[in-house]
Amino acid sequence: MKIAIAGGTGVIGRHAVRAAQSHGHDAVVLSRSEGVDVLTGAGLEERLRGVDVVVDALNTPSLSRRKAVHFFRTTSRHLLEAGARHGVAHHVVLSIVGIDGIDESYYAGKLAQERTVEASGVPHTIARAAQFHEFAAQISAHTSLGPLTIAPRLLARPVAAREVGEHLLRVAETDPAGRAPDLIGPEEHTLADMIRRMYAHDGTSRRVLEMRLPGAYGRGIASGALRGDPGSAQIGTTTFAQWLAQEHRAG
């Protein structure tokens, strides 16, 4: 099978590429480093020739609602339209567990992406996953100043990025289903706890101060909605402690 992976050099995409290759598939990376800009559509036509499945693992660092919505709507539209022209049989998109009631900031972009895919008429599967273990390092890099890190109040069941990439590959190997079962981690953590444990593991001397963000976005991420439902979701196996010991530096 020929599988094109948008964002194939990113945190999740690179794991999806490795999983596809390990299963004997022809993995096509859609990234700027490979001459493809999905936001403008440049390079897409050539790279999608002969592709059976598109996996969309694209990401944007923006927390602006306007920018996130524009990015995910535009990139999804380009992938869907180009895929339809080239007979792509299955469009798989990575989204986030529990965001239905948090139509704000970055999550508004992901919800707009889901709606764009659902309205396209293209055979698709939306695969939602919990926040990644890697999220602790990503957030702390942007919220630290000197000896202090501010951690937004966030409750989730984090999952390893490697397992998310493998999950996307399993979804890509099956028929379009509209929605795949959610993928969540084996344990419940606050973001502040994850960062503190990461600092302790790394020997970082920095105080972590947890703060509830204002507004609907802050209420949403603190509510526990991002944990997903362990009763219906698939559960990853890698704990945060295992990830710290085995994968933190490898990433």
Results as ranks from 00 to 15, higher is better:
residue 56 D to K: 02
residue 91 H to Q: 05
residue 95 S to W: 00
residue 89 A to I: 03
residue 66 R to K: 15
residue 65 R to A: 15
residue 77 R to C: 08
residue 44 L to E: 04
residue 80 L to H: 06
residue 50 G to R: 11
residue 60 T to I: 13
residue 59 N to R: 11
residue 53 V to L: 11
residue 71 F to C: 13
residue 85 R to L: 11
residue 67 K to P: 10
residue 76 S to F: 00
residue 57 A to M: 09
residue 69 V to P: 09
residue 47 R to H: 06
residue 88 V to S: 04
residue 64 S to I: 15
residue 54 V to H: 09
residue 55 V to N: 01
residue 65 R to N: 10
residue 52 D to C: 10
residue 49 R to S: 01
residue 51 V to F: 12
residue 79 L to M: 12
residue 78 H to P: 07
residue 53 V to T: 12
residue 53 V to P: 12
residue 56 D to F: 05
residue 55 V to I: 14
residue 58 L to G: 03
residue 72 F to W: 00
residue 80 L to E: 07
residue 69 V to Y: 05
residue 81 E to R: 09
residue 61 P to R: 12
residue 77 R to M: 02
residue 83 G to P: 07
residue 67 K to T: 10
residue 72 F to G: 01
residue 89 A to R: 14
residue 77 R to N: 11
residue 75 T to Y: 07
residue 67 K to M: 13
residue 60 T to Y: 10
residue 93 V to I: 04
residue 53 V to D: 09
residue 45 E to I: 05
residue 61 P to A: 13
residue 89 A to C: 09
residue 74 T to I: 07
residue 54 V to Y: 05
residue 90 H to K: 06
residue 78 H to N: 15
residue 51 V to M: 02
residue 77 R to F: 11
residue 45 E to Y: 08
residue 60 T to M: 14
residue 90 H to M: 06
residue 50 G to Q: 06
residue 85 R to N: 10
residue 60 T to F: 10
residue 73 R to M: 08
residue 76 S to M: 01
residue 93 V to P: 00
residue 65 R to W: 03
residue 86 H to M: 01
residue 62 S to Y: 15
residue 65 R to T: 13
residue 86 H to K: 04
residue 58 L to Y: 02
residue 59 N to D: 11
residue 85 R to K: 12
residue 52 D to P: 03
residue 46 E to C: 01
residue 71 F to Q: 10
residue 52 D to E: 14
residue 80 L to G: 10
residue 76 S to R: 00
residue 58 L to M: 12
residue 95 S to P: 00
residue 62 S to R: 14
residue 72 F to M: 02
residue 58 L to P: 06
residue 87 G to R: 07
residue 68 A to C: 13
residue 85 R to I: 05
residue 70 H to M: 02
residue 86 H to A: 08
residue 91 H to P: 06
residue 75 T to N: 14
residue 58 L to D: 03
residue 77 R to W: 13
residue 85 R to H: 14
residue 96 I to L: 04
residue 47 R to A: 15
residue 83 G to S: 09
residue 69 V to C: 14
residue 60 T to Q: 08
residue 70 H to D: 04
residue 55 V to W: 00
residue 74 T to M: 12
residue 61 P to W: 12
